[in-house]
Amino acid sequence: MQAIHRIRSRTVVLPAADVDTDQIIPARFLTTTIRDGLGRALFADWRFDSNGHPRPDFVLNRPETAGCEILVAGRNFGCGSSREHAPWALHDFGIRAVISTSIADIFFNNSLKNGLLPVLVDEGTHSWLLANPGADVEIDLEAATVTLPDGRRAGFPIDAFARHCLLHGVDELGYLLSQHAAIAAHEEVRSR
């Protein structure tokens, strides 16, 4: 996994609340045994019509969206299915952070494990971001802040351990495996 320190990008805004992972990537794309290349399926039924042609009015299809790494989303983004294909598809498409006031639990966790930073901001900052698509925003993971173009800064909560993993580009499995002795001891006690 690539280390993340700072993400500086224009935003793309998808204001709808309760966007579920079935929208982020429909189930018919889940019959895959690999995790690469899912960007093509991202929001497939919103991006493309039933003939497979891009819908020009959908925000991810607009020319100014190209290269945007920060998605500003409505509340409860990523609800529903636990499919990790959702953050895989977003990341493969080029998105590196999702900003909202609330993000569904499983999607939040899955994102952290895939170099996609879930950022929870206050209502005021969120309203400003929703109203100003394409704004140049900087996310500083070390400081856990979002900086708006006028220099205003908002903090966001981030678990210390998750931040460590993201800053160093390491996954959590190494740490888990290093707990081998404690796990073995737990198994020993529980088997009695």
């Binding site: 995790r35 636990s82 953050p87 899955n110 888990l176 707990q179």
Partner: peptide, 15 residues
């Protein structure tokens, strides 16, 4: 429910 990365964690460590 958990994601696929965590499925890997549980397979590897049972935790």
């Amino acid at each position: 429910g958990i994601g696929t990365t965590e499925v890997g964690h549980v397979l590897a460590s049972q935790c």
